[in-house]
Design a protein around this nucleic acid. Structure first.
Length: 557
RNA sequence: GGCCCCAUCGUCUAGUGGCCUAGGACGCUGCCCUCUCAAGGCAGAAACACGGGUUCGACUCCCGUUGGGGCUACCA
């Protein structure tokens, strides 16, 4: 087996403080954070006049610190796609010794909920993707909830109005929809038709007199191209003619996604935007907004999508999709991270694909991110999870099982005469050691150890029928029980070797194949066809229970 | 419909013009080990979507076809 990475020996290396979520509860909807020192920061003045003419006028050659962000909108649980995006950002930040920022994009008042926000934060905590700035970890660039940043968007909008880079649009959503449908029906482009772009002062006054509220649209260029070099897929470009004038500020005064994201990414000094492929077409729009504001855009990298096993977008009908579901399935956070990292990224070396999180951090590179979409493979996740479980140090494996055992009220009785006496901790440890590599699935382990802790353990009826159905088999078990009784002094712990000697002697007396005794014995004692090696199991069970179970199986008990 | 992207074993991928008789991982098959089951060891089946170019030479570069995906909002 490969050398065990330090993290598995040391236990958790998660950097985040366990208490963060507890202390950050409620941050999502209520700004209970202390007021920033010195009150509100002065708004950064908008640089007017050097935008289109000189979009890179403010380029600095000084390498800036890496600041990346994960910006979920709290409209549901954390999807594995989102988790993968968060992971890649986190890995990049940790690898580059940068900062990982968490920002909640809750400008959609109708769909955002506090529960969803809490669920997302909890899922990130479960995964151990700790954020340096964000809810519960206020930094210099907060607040980190968009709903608390409204004044900032308003300020930027005012500056844009002053520079003439936005114009009011009085079309209602209904009118827009109707015209869009018409355009599509005619085979034309569905984008905004520019109706309000060149309105005169008097026309605007008339529309406003009708009581129409204005949304504000970016006056975007109608020719040329908007291009960028994507960190993942290289040069990308879009025809400006295809990019219609987008709404930056809705009629209700709330910013749209593209506008809020740009303002926030700029004000939070984000250096790299790593997000899902589904955002590529937003990028030229955002680039235009940066330009209009006179800001230098960050670098962009678009991660390929995660598809279901059938190549369609991953959805619930494929199986689990939320981090929470994987947690209840018994998937370890590090295993999920390991698997997710391999979806769309490769370490570029052959052999083992099992990595502890700090190995991922060390190896991660944007250069090795794939540009093609990947299908989610639940079986490989299971394999990786099993490998992670197998590499856990004994105490941590015990910690995974213990609460579930306690939940069922299982305990250890000194009368069993096990090597652990009545020490439950030691007993669990010994049981898990006996199980060894067979313990690689949290969903199964409870059934695998049940017969050590209770008489009410699951029994495989088919196994009983085949292995204990014959009279000869039961007679052999009765003989074994008798011989064990004779060998047992009623006081001391019988070691595995002791059980084995009695069993071998019994086989010799009976003059049969050893397996003809051992297999029925296993079924009689564990209820299962498969278990850990039988003699250590018998030792852990203790002679009293072994003899009782044998007699019961033999029909004598 | 329009725009954009993607294309190597069933799946995740390595591969940046000759190292490729295409490598690894999961899964699958067989054998070994063996008290069962796992684990482990060994072996095996399994792919460059198709068609044109470019080149002395294409998995690698270009074009087209096909297939898949994304976007096309006063959602994010």
């Amino acid at each position: 087996m490969a050398p065990i990475p330090r993290s598995w020996q040391r236990g958790s290396t998660r950097r985040h403080r366990r208490s963060r979520w507890e202390t950050s509860r409620g941050q999502c909807s209520r700004p209970s954070r202390p007021a920033p020192r010195g009150g509100e920061r002065a708004p950064r003045p908008l640089e007017r006049g050097l935008s289109w003419a000189s979009p890179f006028g403010r380029t600095s050659m000084i390498a800036t610190a890496v600041r990346v962000r994960f910006a979920p909108s709290p409209t549901g649980y954390l999807h594995v796609g989102g988790a993968r995006t968060a992971l890649f950002n986190w890995l990049y930040a940790r690898n580059q010794r940068g900062r990982f920022i968490l920002r909640i994009e809750d400008t959609d008042q109708a769909r955002s909920t506090e529960e969803a926000c809490g669920a997302i934060l909890r899922a990130l905590e479960f995964l151990g993707l700790d954020w340096d700035e964000g809810p519960g970890a206020e930094g210099d660039h907060g607040p980190y909830l968009q709903s608390q940043r409204l004044p900032r968007y308003r300020q930027t909008l005012e500056a844009l109005k002053a520079s003439g880079r936005v114009y009011p649009c009085y079309c209602t959503p209904e009118e827009l929809d109707a015209r869009r449908e018409l355009a599509v029906a005619r085979g034309q482009m569905p984008g905004y038709d520019g109706r309000c772009r060149e309105l005169s002062v008097s026309q605007r006054a008339r529309l406003e007199a009708e009581g129409r509220a204005a949304s504000w649209r970016l006056r975007a260029p109608t020719e040329g191209v908007t291009a960028w070099t994507d960190l993942v897929c290289g040069r990308r470009e879009f025809q400006n003619a295809l990019l219609s004038d987008r709404v930056l500020s809705r009629a209700d005064g709330f910013p749209t996604y593209n506008f809020a994201a740009v303002v926030d990414d700029h004000e939070m000094a984000i250096s790299h935007v790593l997000r899902g492929d589904d955002h590529v077409s937003n990028t030229p729009v955002q680039l235009l907004i940066y330009d209009a504001c006179g800001w230098l855009p960050p670098k962009f990298g678009h991660l390929p999508m995660i598809l279901g096993p059938d190549g369609k977008r991953l959805s619930k009908r494929h199986g689990a999709t939320s981090v929470e579901e994987f947690e209840t399935m018994g998937i370890l956070p590090d295993a999920l991270l390991n698997y997710l990292a391999l979806l769309g990224w490769s370490p570029g070396v052959e052999g083992e694909e099992i990595y502890a999180r700090e190995q991922l951090v060390r190896k991660f590179s944007l250069k090795r991110v794939a540009s093609s979409p990947a299908s989610f493979d639940y079986r490989k996740l299971d394999f990786i999870n099993g490998e992670h479980i197998k590499r856990l140090p004994p105490q941590r494996r015990a910690a995974l099982v213990r609460p579930r055992l306690q939940e069922r009220g299982w305990q250890v009785d000194v009368a069993w005469r096990t090597p652990a006496g009545a020490d439950a901790e030691l007993y669990l440890d010994l049981v898990l050691r006996a199980l060894g590599n067979r313990f690689n699935d949290l969903r199964r382990v409870l059934d695998q150890v049940a017969y050590f802790f209770t008489e009410d353990y699951p029994v495989d009826a088919a196994a009983v029928a085949t292995d204990l159905g014959a009279d000869e088999a039961r007679a052999r078990l009765a003989r074994l029980a008798d011989n064990l009784t004779a060998a047992d002094d009623g006081v001391s712990v019988m070691p595995a070797a002791g059980f084995e000697k009695v069993a071998r002697d019994t086989v010799a007396q009976l003059d049969v194949e050893a397996s003809l005794l051992i297999h029925p014995c296993r079924v009689a004692v564990t209820g299962q066809l498969a278990s850990a090696r039988i003699f250590p199991v018998l030792e852990l069970l203790g002679a009293p229970r072994v003899i009782a179970r044998l007699r019961r199986a033999a029909g004598l008990g």
